[in-house]
Amino acid sequence: NMTTNERRVIVPADPTLWTQEHVRQWLEWAIKEYSLMEIDTSFFQNMDGKELCKMNKEDFLRATTLYNTEVLLSHLSYLRES
């Protein structure tokens, strides 16, 4: 059983600085953390943090459901504000 610390993704605090690998790690973490289903992860495959942060609700909806979109966008905006 993993502790919270072991599951925590170590990525730069500012999502606009993320590499493609960071985006992948964040997505994998969010899927596990929030038990998200039905995400087309290939949609995010060649995307870095700058591109991710430019995405709006409609962009996310092409890859996943409305619920997942709201979870991911709210977590992303939380990270950008902190």
Rank of each mutant, 00 (worst) to 15 (best):
I39M: 13
A30W: 02
S77P: 06
L66M: 12
M55E: 01
L73I: 06
R8K: 15
V23A: 02
D14P: 03
P15K: 00
D14A: 06
I10K: 14
M47R: 05
Q20K: 15
N46Y: 09
E33F: 01
D40R: 03
L27W: 01
L52Y: 00
A30F: 05
D48E: 06
D48V: 13
I39E: 05
T69K: 01
Y67K: 11
R8Q: 09
E70W: 00
A30M: 10
L72R: 00
T3I: 10
H22S: 05
V9T: 13
K54V: 08
L36W: 01
T4L: 11
K50H: 13
N68Y: 01
Q20D: 10
T19M: 04
N68K: 00
K32S: 12
F44M: 04
E58V: 07
N5L: 14
Y67P: 12
S74A: 13
V23R: 02
S35Y: 05
S35K: 14
E21T: 08
T4P: 11
H22D: 15
K54T: 06
W18R: 02
S35C: 07
Y34F: 15
S42C: 06
N68H: 03
W18S: 00
Y67Q: 14
L17I: 13
L73M: 10
S42H: 10
L73Q: 14
R62M: 13
N1D: 05
W26V: 01
M47I: 14
W18F: 02
L36M: 10
W18K: 00
T3C: 13
A13C: 11
L36D: 03
I10E: 15
N1A: 10
A63W: 12
M2W: 10
E51I: 05
Q45L: 12
C53P: 00
V9M: 07
E38Y: 08
L66G: 09
L66H: 12
E6F: 03
W29I: 11
M2L: 12
V9I: 08
H22Y: 04
S42D: 14
H75R: 09
G49Y: 03
A30Q: 15
E6V: 09
I31P: 00
L72E: 00
E38V: 06
M2P: 09
Y34G: 06
I39A: 05
K54C: 07
F44Q: 00
Q45V: 14
Y34V: 00
H22I: 06
W18C: 02
S77F: 08
N56P: 07
W29Q: 14
P15I: 11
T3G: 09
N1Y: 12
K57W: 08
V71D: 00
S42L: 08
F43D: 07
T19H: 15
D48L: 04
L73V: 09
L76F: 02
T69N: 05
E70M: 05
N1K: 04
R24G: 13
E21A: 13
E33G: 01
N56L: 08
D40H: 03
L52P: 02
W29P: 00
A13V: 13
S35L: 04
D59S: 08
T65P: 09
T4F: 11
T16I: 11
L76V: 03
V23G: 00
E58S: 14
L61S: 09
V11M: 15
W26N: 02
M37F: 15
A63G: 13
D48A: 08
I10F: 06
Y67T: 12
L72M: 09
L27C: 04
M55A: 08
R62K: 14
R62H: 10
F44K: 00
W18P: 01
N5Q: 06
T3K: 15
F60V: 03
W26F: 06
L27F: 14
R24N: 09
T64S: 02
D48M: 03
Q25L: 09
V23S: 03
S74H: 10
N46K: 13
S35M: 05
T65R: 04
L66V: 13
T19Y: 00
P12G: 11
T65M: 03
N46V: 04
L17A: 13
L76R: 02
T64C: 03
L66Q: 10
D59H: 07
L73P: 01
D14T: 04
F43Q: 12
M37T: 14
W18L: 01
E38N: 04
N56G: 14
T69H: 01
Q20P: 03
K32M: 06
D48Y: 04
N56M: 12
Y67W: 07
M55N: 01
T19F: 01
Y34K: 11
S42Q: 13
K57E: 08
K57H: 03
P15V: 10
L73G: 05
T64A: 03
P12K: 07
Q25H: 09
R24K: 09
I31L: 05
E38M: 09
W29G: 15
I10R: 14
K57G: 03
T41P: 12
R62I: 02
E51V: 08
L66A: 11
F60L: 08
E58K: 07
M2A: 03
D59M: 07
E6N: 11
G49I: 03
T65V: 00
Y67I: 15
W18V: 00
T19Q: 08
V11A: 15
W29A: 14
Q45T: 10
L27H: 03
L72V: 02
N5F: 09
I10L: 07
L27P: 00
E70R: 04
E70S: 09
R8D: 13
Q25A: 10
P12S: 14
F43L: 14
G49T: 00
Q20H: 13
E6D: 07
A63R: 11
L36G: 03
D59G: 10
F44A: 09
N1M: 11
N5Y: 08
A63K: 09
N46S: 09
D48K: 06
E38R: 06
L72A: 03
N68R: 02
G49L: 02
V71N: 04
T41S: 08
L36N: 02
D48Q: 06
W29Y: 10
D48T: 11
V23P: 11
V9Q: 15
S74E: 15
F43M: 12
Q45S: 12
G49E: 01
T16R: 08
A13D: 15
W18T: 00
W26G: 00
I31R: 14
I39S: 01
L17P: 00
T41W: 10
P12W: 12
L79F: 02
N56D: 11
E38I: 04
P15D: 03
P15E: 01
E38A: 15
F43T: 09
E38Q: 06
M47C: 13
M2Q: 13
V71K: 14
R7S: 07
T41I: 02
T64M: 12
V9E: 15
R8Y: 04
F60C: 02
R24C: 04
K57Y: 08
I10C: 05
K50W: 06
E6R: 08
M37G: 12
A13G: 15
I10D: 15
E51L: 08
L73K: 06
E33R: 10
S42P: 09
V11F: 15
V9H: 14
L61W: 11
N56I: 05
K50T: 15
P12T: 12
V11S: 15
L72K: 00
P12V: 03
K57S: 05
L76M: 06
K54R: 10
D14F: 03
K54S: 12
E58D: 11
D40A: 03
W26M: 03
T64P: 02
T65H: 05
C53K: 02
V9S: 15
T69G: 07
K54L: 12
I31A: 11
L61E: 07
Q20A: 08
E21F: 14
T19N: 05
R7K: 05
F60P: 00
K54H: 03
V23D: 01
N56C: 07
K32T: 12
L72F: 06
V9Y: 02
V11I: 12
E6L: 12
E6S: 11
E6W: 12
T41K: 13
